[in-house]
Write a protein that binds this DNA or RNA. Structure first.
Lengths: 342, 342
DNA sequence: TTTTAAATCTAAATCGATTTAGTAGATTAG
DNA sequence: CTAATCTACTAAATCGATTTAGATTTAAAA
């Protein structure tokens, strides 16, 4: 019952030619290697007839290439990452690559472990949302001349490829937008991760607040806060303790989720008057009541750029390929939540 | 600069022992193969010192195992699939497996192509959300004794492992719940895919409607409807043409998303009185206004069961392992959207 | 006719681990 | 004192493709 898989050698034996010849022909190098047209035809036809598929593992062992790209995100179940993952997947498959997705949960240990897991699998390239503590791991990957692109954040003191957005300006603009809409007590709810993305968002917020001489009010929720209940409790207390707040900028979509849950449950009336703005747009913010204004990242373009960079870095000689550092602009999607309701 | 990777042979040469011995020791078979304690110690220590990592590709080539599992879902960017993907990922990594995720978009061609892509990569097992037309492909995978579990849906005329939920009862109960809450004109918005999951949901809905002698009113939106705009237009027209409708059951979360967008934009007042119930719960339905009642699937348990089945099927002799067909019960999360507002 | 060149094709090494089938040498048994 | 049995290890084949470095054969040039 168990269908036999054909190997190169099977073809070679059946046709009474050498494995070398078959390999040349099937890898399209027949002409170049001076195999006669007749034989090329014969081998090609036979291979098609028996539906021959080269064993990729054997091929990888020999060539050192696997046609597999690793995409390590913070959390694949987060809408933001899931969306871009899908875009990356589509491009990769189109180009003949497969993608191994994994989530590092923003934990250095997990991130390092994952990279080490892949390093013995001759993965062709990495797209990584790095955690703060894996600078050196990334550096050694690069020293080994493995294609790497960072994504969403980067290391200011390490020259790498990266694709990010203009976080500081985006946060600044978002805050200014709230200010222009008459909000005066604007909070920033952020996480405690010391990523460039987050710290730039904080900077942008502070810059805008200071420019208008308003009060800064920042809540930093630990990313490690495992129980969502606890996360919500922290946000709830923050808003209870700061009744003066009339607007809030959320630095990541998972905080927004928690925040909206809290608002809905505990301060439904307050929410109606609260200015709300979030990073990372998605459909649900659009259909929320009130619809939530959001800083939207150009996911499609980012995915394309990420793949461009990885695929490009794979060309030899890798040393000669200049690093690419791409900063995309975000778009401020203005919706109901950032207008004052009287 | 480029750091050299050590191989088994490097260790063997450095210690003046054979590669065989090193392999035995490092694979933990030292004692069993009668290698002396001293040598075991020496090899283990040395391997640790140089941070030896066996080349997984070479290992795969020899053993035919890759420690890679493929998880093919409908669309990894869909919250439902993204969530379960993450759960699967966690379990897999814990057990030493990696997961290749891919999306088949409910297209037979894409699904087949993907499976064929993986088949030459000695993947150890498959978790698949099958499309309707890949029954035979699944069958041949099984004939080749490759571990396969279907998920979310299955083929009634093919004996396979699968993990699903009681779709018909869930839809029935959901509909009855709406009926019990005084709704009388309940629509079902579903897709045109002829999957067991969907057809069972349709059956459950019809069963409940018929039981009460109400009118069936089903909208089937083509899954292929590429533009979300078009999808929304179809839903909009449906509700315009059926002003009698006072409630709706959405058969999948992406339809619900589209539906809620339409309601918010075009019938905000009507939405307030409309009974809404959806399959596939997520946080956003909870924080939506009104909060959306939902049929919630036990994702964690499902992921665990899926992994159990794949890992188990990998044990030899595979023929002797009985197929597992698991049907989980859903939970009806009752929220605001399924109550009549006066 | 010999030499050179061109056209075709192939043997064998290689990638790095696993595994089968042994081999020495020490020990014990008869 | 020889044979049988252990103990501790290893040579070489293997997985399946790629690739280097030739080997034939034939045709053209000298």
């Amino acid at each position: 019952m168990k269908k036999k898989r054909y190997s190169l050698k099977d073809i070679a034996n059946s046709l009474n030619v050498s494995a070398t010849t078959v390999s040349f022909v099937l890898s399209g190098k027949g002409k170049e290697k001076g195999i006669s047209d007749g034989l090329i035809q014969k081998i090609t036809d036979f291979a098609k007839k028996i539906d021959y598929k080269p064993n990729q593992v054997a091929r990888s062992l020999r060539t050192g290439k696997s046609k597999i790209i690793v995409c390590m995100v913070e959390d694949i179940s987060n809408v933001f990452f899931a969306k871009i993952a899908r875009l990356i997947e589509d491009i990769a498959y189109e180009k003949g690559y497969k993608v191994l997705f994994c989530s590092n949960e923003n934990k250095d240990e997990k991130a390092k472990e994952l990279i080490s897991l892949f390093s013995d699998r001759q993965v062709d390239g990495y797209i990584i949302t790095p955690t703060i503590g894996i600078r050196d791991t990334i550096k050694s990957l690069m020293d080994e001349e493995v294609p790497v692109v960072l994504f969403d954040r980067y290391f200011p003191d390490l020259e790498t490829n990266y694709v990010v957005v203009n976080n500081q300006d985006s946060a600044y603009n978002a805050t200014i937008h709230l200010i222009n809409n008459q909000f005066k007590n604007i909070a920033l709810v952020t996480t405690d991760v010391e990523q460039t993305s987050i710290s730039q968002r904080i900077k942008g917020y502070k810059e805008a607040i200071n420019e208008y001489g308003y009060n800064q009010c920042v809540l930093s929720v630990s990313y490690e806060e495992k129980s969502p209940e606890n996360k919500k409790k922290i946000i709830r207390n923050f808003f209870l303790e700061n009744p003066q707040l009339d607007a809030v900028l959320f630095a990541t979509n998972h905080l927004t989720q928690a925040g909206l849950e809290v608002f809905k449950k505990d301060f439904p009336d307050r929410m109606k008057k609260l200015g709300i703005l979030t990073f990372d747009d998605n459909v649900f913010f659009k259909i929320h009541t009130p619809s939530i204004s959001a800083v939207s990242q150009p996911l499609k373009q980012m995915a394309e750029e990420l793949m461009n960079i990885v695929l490009n870095s794979m060309k030899k000689p890798s040393r000669s390929i200049p690093l690419r550092q791409v900063v995309f602009l975000t778009e401020l999607k203005i919706r109901d939540s950032s207008f004052v309701v009287d």
